Computed example of a mutant assay.
Amino acid sequence: MTQQETADVRSLADLTPEQMTKLSEGSFSDLIGLKFTELSPDRVRGEWTVRPQLYQPAGIQNGGVYCTVIETLASVGGGVWYGERGTVVGVNNNTDFLRAVREGTLYGEATPVHRGRLQQLWVVVITDDSGRTVARGQVRLQNLPQQD
């Protein structure tokens, strides 16, 4: 997206998955290779490829990558839902690592558990190419109303 296109975006709800991926260029989620594949107020999906640069010393996917993906997908979903009312920020991220992964593509899916006036809670499940759950987490978001 050009700077003008970015400036024209009033909220995350105005973006397609491709535009969100483009908007993320140069960010931490771009560094790990996260690509958005679905973007709506009720579900956000993304995927990335496991590669040696994302390993921890034991030669498996680093858990910090899971935490990043979980935080990112939940925050984007919360932001899409909250829309022009303001912005959202993560205030808690609990991530469980369930299965070691050394290769392949991983898929994350974020869905809301609760969306209130001041807070939201989203759950994110990460699966592998075989559909097995490899990690799961939940993120509590604070809704920050736009100041006029």
Results as ranks from 00 to 15, higher is better:
E71T: 05
Q56R: 12
G77R: 08
R99F: 06
E71N: 09
P57I: 03
L121E: 06
G64W: 06
F97Q: 09
P112R: 14
L73N: 03
V88Y: 03
V124E: 01
A100P: 15
F97H: 14
G78N: 07
N62C: 07
V89A: 13
V88F: 08
V80F: 04
P112Y: 12
Y82M: 06
G63T: 01
N94W: 05
E109A: 14
V88L: 09
T87P: 00
G59Y: 06
Q61Y: 05
N93H: 09
V76I: 13
Q120K: 03
G108D: 03
V69C: 08
T111S: 07
E109S: 14
T68N: 09
T72I: 01
L121D: 09
G116P: 10
V124F: 04
Q56C: 00
A58W: 12
R102Q: 13
G77F: 06
G90R: 10
I60T: 13
L118T: 15
G116W: 12
V65T: 06
Y107F: 15
Y82C: 02
V113P: 00
L106D: 05
W122N: 04
E103S: 15
G116V: 09
V113H: 09
N94F: 02
E71M: 01
L121H: 11
A74P: 02
E109T: 15
E103G: 01
A58G: 07
G104L: 10
